Computed example of a mutant assay.
Amino acid sequence: MTELRSVYWIGGGSGAGKSTIARRLAARHGLRLYDTDGVMSDHGRRSTPETCPYLAEFIAMDMDERWLNRSPETMLETFHWYRGEGFDLIVEDLLGLPPGPGVVVEGFRLLPHLVEPLLVERRRAAWLLPTPEFRRFALESRGSTWQIAGRTSDPERALRNLLDRDRMFTDRLALEAASLGLPVIEVDGTMTENDVAERVTTAFGL
């Protein structure tokens, strides 16, 4: 889509450092930043049960129904953002931005099969894929490990479910990006923030 030719896309699993890397690239190269996590509430309000049925079902559940009473596999298959619901609203927002510099878009909602048709060059997108160990360490260092799990009746089991679900999601991203010939960068404990930023910068040809 030529209207999005100035967009750079950073997708990937939770805890991979997408937000940090996107902020660094935006500041270094004079680009606008679009955080897909930051607009989730707005997109929820702009959605309907007809356009986002999985979101409607999720909203109707209590915390135990969401994170304890279902298997991680079911959580993966029914989580609305993982299904691509609301991606059209991301595109709508981007198309509505005023003329200006390029845009760095980041977030786990950027599924490879949805982004790929919008690319004018394949090197305009990259997916950061954390190892399970790195993801757990990253979330714990942020103090966010229990933000969701701690609101259930069994936080430890809820956390295991969440981590299993997100591990499977990351594996799915890796397979999907590879099948489409899109760049992936595995993030583990041996890489510094500078290392990841440089690899993304190189992938984008900036």
Rank of each mutant, 00 (worst) to 15 (best):
V105R: 00
D164T: 11
L118A: 04
R66M: 01
A177P: 02
I148G: 11
W67A: 14
L97Q: 02
H80T: 02
F108L: 09
P130I: 00
R70G: 05
M75L: 11
R83Y: 08
Y82E: 07
G84K: 15
F87G: 01
S153V: 03
P53A: 03
T145I: 09
L139M: 14
L175H: 08
T78Q: 14
R157V: 03
A174H: 06
R165P: 02
E73D: 15
F58V: 08
R124H: 15
A60R: 04
M61V: 14
D64R: 08
T152L: 01
D154E: 09
A158R: 02
L163Y: 05
R172V: 05
E140P: 15
R135W: 09
R160S: 04
L94N: 00
E85W: 11
E176Q: 12
L118E: 13
A174Y: 00
D88G: 07
G84M: 04
I148C: 08
E121L: 12
F108G: 05
R167Y: 12
E85T: 11
I148P: 08
F79A: 04
D171H: 13
R124L: 06
P132S: 10
E140F: 13
T74E: 13
D64Q: 06
S141F: 09
E65N: 04
R165H: 01
F137G: 14
L94A: 06
W81F: 07
L76V: 11
R122T: 04
A174M: 04
Y82S: 10
D164C: 09
P101I: 08
E140D: 07
E106A: 12
E133Q: 14
A177Q: 02
L173Q: 03
R151H: 02
F134N: 03
W67L: 04
L129C: 02
T74G: 10
W146M: 02
T51F: 01
A174V: 07
G100L: 01
L173A: 02
